[in-house]
Design a protein around this nucleic acid. Structure first.
Lengths: 342, 342
DNA sequence: CGAAAAATTCAAAGCGGTTTGAATTCCAAT
DNA sequence: ATTGGAATTCAAACCGCTTTGAATTTTTCG
């Protein structure tokens, strides 16, 4: 059914060395032999054993993703869209994706093991924390990696791809302020993640510029899930002085907020405005001529693709300088915003 | 930092053979030597090379998942919860998860390659189709696998875990009929998948029993996404004779339907009833004292865990009979259902 | 034509484990 | 003290590929 290198070499009456080199495109093998080898390989249905190859070369053609279990990430649908993007690129480039789902406590150990055992040639880092130990660890172990997001602002010693969260939220907040809103709520993500911190900064920047005082009563920070949006919106609507607009960190809490709003008999875009960050989750499309939500849009799947490209680049060109990409989001006007009612 | 078997053997002044056997728990090594070996291994921080091991044994301790890209599955958040469950079990049992995201056209070829190259010891099959070629393929190649779902009803020649979709939907439909509803809409999943077919049968069974004629105008079958629920609900509400209740195949379209209902100024549970299948997606919890939706509930993450256990069992005990589990769903009464208004 | 240079090809030594078949060691029984 | 068998241990082959260093063939050119 399928032969190994030795058999292939014997069938050709040529040494294994030459066959191996012919197959791997080494220059010192004559075109004539290479043709013969390639033909015979095809004919005998030769396929190299990845295990043997890994053992011999030390390279695994595999990229690792370690996901802390019971964290709110795997759990998070953003993750699957990101993985979808990443995975397409990997398999296009002949890389395997190794996914480890481990308890938080074993996370660091898992990195060590994956690397020590040479099971991976590179790692993708998700959802960086404010002071993320994974980055230091990977740098110490000299393992190529790319971070989706950034840890500290000024640290360019590793490769990352991020969106301009601060500018994005500043822009959205200003957009609302320009519409006349003076009470703007914030349903942010977990502020232990750097992206959420930056978003809040952008929000604060814009408030300050518009000379609006921030009010902790209408600022929240939690995991970006639907019920969170519902619960907090509900709470805000019960205030003596409810917001006339809210800014959401993801379309999930936005849906929750929408539910609370509609339940209260209010109409979004007229009675209250919503702007949300939109990761373009494939199962929750916010599109159409007039999208349901006014949104800051940036495809998380596209980010996944680009991260994968960057990582493969780094793996295949060791010694390369780290690269960085800061993507701007697009502000799409949808049906959920309108002027403040006076 | 870390040694290999040879170095470990040398340090002990013992042959590699014995060291290997001591480490792998063979009976023919004396307890005294085993202790010494284990201690020294610990001390020298020995960790076996998985590549070498794979090459020597032919086993990979890896389980493969191939996900067709641009299919609506990766895309589907159900998938990530399932993977979360599966992944926990894998890493607990020392297995790696290999995930391949490939174009539909390369799917079959990917199975062949993964198996021929011995990169995986078993495969998990997602979302079986009505006549699924993957199953036949895996059987032919004698690769252990478990199907999440079932293909044909009467085929017990492979291992699967499924929920009783037919009974579940029959029960829900009857529940609505018992509440006096005579016009019950169906927002089903894609009926090229077997689970959706079974759900529809259950629905039809109950309608028949209640002597209600099925009406194609209020029966839909699409990918289970939010906008789908919204769109179809909107359409149904515009009918001269709109349904008084709907049955949804997932909480995502249920959310969409809810949005349409609220937008129409109606109140769920009073003006119109919704029952939905609930996979207990971790980011969309439908819980609380009175859950938002009346739901047929079955944790997809728990299913993932069990599937993983079954698969590992099958891998480690070759020649085992295939096993099957048919889970019943739980009917949880939430706030979205009430008697039909007359 | 012959020697030096260049282009190919090769045998053998890894990579780091497992496993076979033979060689030792140990111990009870003669 | 022998001896035979059970209990341990070992050297070497093997898994399938890459790569080094030497050998061979081909080409180039005085």
């Amino acid at each position: 059914m399928s032969v190994n290198l030795k058999q292939l070499a014997e069938a050709l009456g040529i040494s294994q060395t030459t066959v191996s080199r012919a197959l791997n495109g080494f220059p010192e093998v004559s075109e004539k032999t290479r043709r013969k080898v390639l033909d015979m390989a095809q004919q005998l249905n030769y396929s190299p054993s990845p295990h043997a190859k890994k053992l011999a070369t030390g390279k695994s053609k595999t990229i690792g993703h370690v996901v802390p279990q019971s964290d709110h990430m795997m759990i998070n649908p953003l993750f699957s869209d990101f993985i979808a993007g990443v995975g397409e690129v990997y398999s296009g480039a002949g890389y395997d994706m190794l996914m480890s789902i481990v308890p938080r406590a074993q996370e660091e150990n898992t990195y060590h093991k994956l690397i020590a055992s040479k099971r991976v040639d590179g790692m993708m880092v998700h959802a960086p924390l404010v002071n993320d130990t994974r980055i230091a660890l990977l740098q110490k172990l000299k393992m190529p990696f790319v971070v989706h997001g950034r840890s500290a602002d000024d640290d360019d010693s590793y490769s990352w791809l991020d969106i301009n969260n601060r500018r994005s939220f500043e822009r959205a907040t200003r957009f609302l302020a320009d519409l006349g809103h003076r009470r703007i709520g914030l349903l942010n993500g977990l502020e232990s993640m750097t992206f959420a911190q930056r978003r809040r900064m952008g929000y604060m920047d814009a408030l300050k510029e518009a000379q609006i005082d921030a009010d902790p009563q209408i600022m929240f920070s939690e995991d970006m899930m639907e019920p969170y949006g519902y619960r907090c919106m509900h709470k805000m609507l019960a205030l003596a002085n409810p917001p006339t607009a809210v800014l959401c960190s993801s379309i999930l809490p936005a849906l929750g907020a929408l539910r609370a709003i509609q339940e209260a008999g209010m109409e979004p875009g007229r009675d209250i405005s919503i702007v949300t960050h939109d990761d373009m989750l494939s199962f929750l499309s916010n599109s159409g001529d007039i999208p349901m939500f006014t949104a800051l849009r940036s495809s998380i799947k596209a980010a996944g693709k680009r991260c994968a490209e960057m990582l493969i680049d780094a793996i295949e060109n060791p010694g390369m300088e780290p690269s960085h990409e800061l993507w701007e989001t697009e502000l799409v006007i949808g049906g959920s915003t309108g002027p403040a009612r006076s």
